[in-house]
């Protein structure tokens, strides 16, 4: 079942077509990667989901129903360009933002304190935001995004500004949120995190969808039948590393086992990074 469906959404600013007939289906409890170069239209699409902008045409279905103002509480959004009120106290501010998402003040206070303990930032509650480092502020922003337990989470470059330890913490949180039932839309340029986290992706460029599917299928589709082979020749010489192109791996293996002892045989799948670069540059031509 799809939790989120975008059907034929288009958006034009002036004469510039920012989104052209975009459709995606995001299965429930999956992580969906929204990929594309800068200016591809990702932010516009995300803003449409958040009802900040209205599409010129097309429809967005959330849990089978057209998007309505009441859905705001079901969505958690961590924008790429994010900030907090500098002069406000951390806890006070987090409660304010949770209240805007429709939470009750007491409930927000209680849950926030739990999250602050979990993220090891409980002693920042009464500090002003301007006293925190950028990474610390990011933690607060993450908590504020998920505090109302939204069914749909939208993360735009969630890892930027985090150190590797906190990136790991965040990745685990995101995976845990999925386990708990959230559907996650994930926009990033960081391809390794896409491979690590995403179940499905869509690649857009200049407002057009140029690729869609599961990460596994896409890799299969773009593989160029390259194999990494290691074997130890029978004559007792050094182990051999080969990178071979072949449409018939059985034949290749047969050839190798005649020459020596097969140590390892791996298909080299293209990285998402390569697929991204190849597709975007070819679609730009």
């Amino acid at each position: 079942m799809n939790y989120l469906e975008i059907n034929n959404v288009s958006k034009t600013y002036g004469t510039k077509k920012v989104l052209n007939d975009i459709s995606i289906k995001v299965p429930k409890q999956s992580i969906y990667g929204l990929l594309g170069p800068n200016g591809a239209g990702k932010t516009t699409l995300i803003r449409i989901l958040n009802q900040i902008t209205m599409p010129d045409s097309g429809q967005v279905l959330l849990d089978g129903n057209p998007l309505s103002p009441n859905d705001i509480a079901k969505i958690g959004y961590l924008p790429e360009e994010r900030g907090l009120y500098k002069k406000m106290k951390v806890g006070e501010q987090a409660i304010y933002l949770a209240q805007l998402k429709g939470m009750d003040r007491k409930e927000a206070d209680k849950r926030l304190r739990q999250w602050f303990v979990k993220f090891d930032i409980a002693n920042w509650w009464d500090k002003k935001v301007e006293e925190l480092s950028k990474g610390m502020q990011q933690k607060v922003q993450f908590i504020v995004t998920v505090i109302h337990e939204p069914k749909l989470l939208i993360f735009d470059e969630p890892f930027s500004g985090f150190d590797p330890i906190n990136v790991n913490l965040l990745k685990n949180e995101i995976l845990e949120l999925r386990e708990k039932g959230s559907t996650i839309l994930f926009s990033t340029h960081n391809m390794s995190s896409v491979e690590e986290l995403c179940d499905n992706i869509m690649l857009i460029n200049k407002g057009e969808k140029i690729l869609e599917g599961s990460v596994y299928d896409i890799k299969q589709r773009f593989k160029n039948h390259t194999y990494d082979v290691v074997y130890k020749p029978f004559d007792g010489s050094e182990e051999q590393h080969l990178t071979v192109n072949s449409t018939n791996p059985n034949e290749l293996i047969r050839d190798i086992i005649e020459k020596g002892k097969l140590v390892s045989f791996n298909e080299i799948l293209p990285s998402m990074n390569e697929i991204f670069i190849n597709l975007v540059s070819s679609s730009n031509q």
């Binding site: 900040i52 959004y77 924008p79 360009e81 994010r82 907090l84 009120y85 933002l97 805007l100 504020v144």
Partner: peptide
Amino acid sequence: IEEKTNRIIEVIVSSVKP
């Protein structure tokens, strides 16, 4: 201007109407 420059605006308008 404060809300715009410290970039909290996008979080807020995802919760309330501008």
